[in-house]
């Protein structure tokens, strides 16, 4: 019924008491928001909590929502702020999460070390999975500012203007952060370029 309806219209319907509209919004954005949060904070449980909190804030703030505002901008602003707060808290506590991504500066070894050479070429799926993990670590190694821009740009296909609105910085700053993020990723993943070519072929 509401599958073709725009997010903003669904939100207005929800403001008028249509719960089904919110259900559609939830089912439409739950997964991308969850994965955005998961890649940002790198922790499943935290991501689940933050996802819940993000939509709770949407519900609480639904009354104040204006039709002129893009819903995804509003939603990802909430999610991003929650992630930033969470990251700050974690840094403040100086408790390293057990399943936190490895720092790129650490002597954590390379993908070649992780994947035994005899299995690498044979099992493409396995290689693909491990390459994803490596990519995830590289992304986690980015600074918060670079990571959020990179995630929104590459994983959510957001235009720079919208990212700038979500992050609250000028568009040029967003582009600059994106450039630095890509440069850092290139450096991080340089030694896996041949492997990436194999997987993508």
């Amino acid at each position: 019924m509401f599958n073709d309806t725009a997010d903003e219209d669904l939100m207005v319907m929800y403001q008028k008491g249509e719960v089904r509209a919110f259900e559609v919004l939830l089912s439409r954005h739950r997964k991308p928001v969850y994965n955005f949060i998961l890649r940002f904070v790198g922790d499943k449980e935290t991501a689940e909590d933050l996802l819940q909190e993000a939509f709770m804030r949407v519900i609480k703030g639904a009354e104040a929502y204006k039709r002129q505002a893009k819903f995804t901008t509003w939603l990802y602003t909430i999610a991003r702020n929650l992630c930033v707060d969470q990251t700050r808290r974690r840094k403040h506590r100086k408790h390293a999460s057990l399943d936190a991504p490895m720092d790129s500066s650490e002597e954590s070894g390379t993908l070649m070390d992780v994947i035994p050479s005899n299995e690498m070429a044979s099992d493409r799926k396995s290689v693909n999975k491990q390459l994803h993990e490596t990519m995830q670590r590289a992304i986690a190694a980015l600074s918060d500012e670079q990571r959020e821009v990179f995630l929104m740009r590459e994983f959510l296909d957001m235009p720079f203007k919208q990212i700038a609105d979500v992050v609250g910085v000028p568009e040029n700053t967003v582009k600059s952060r994106m450039r630095y993020a890509l440069e850092k990723l290139r450096l991080e993943l340089d030694e896996y370029k041949d492997l990436a070519k194999v997987v993508t072929l």
């Binding site: 997964k31 994965n35 994803h132 896996y192 370029k193 990436a196 993508t200």
Partner: peptide, 20 residues
């Protein structure tokens, strides 16, 4: 090199985890 890596992270999107 980055173009080939991009294909990796774009491929990662397909494997997005379902929220619980």
């Amino acid at each position: 090199m980055m173009r080939s890596m991009r294909s990796v992270w774009l491929d990662m999107r397909d494997g997005d985890a379902e929220p619980p």
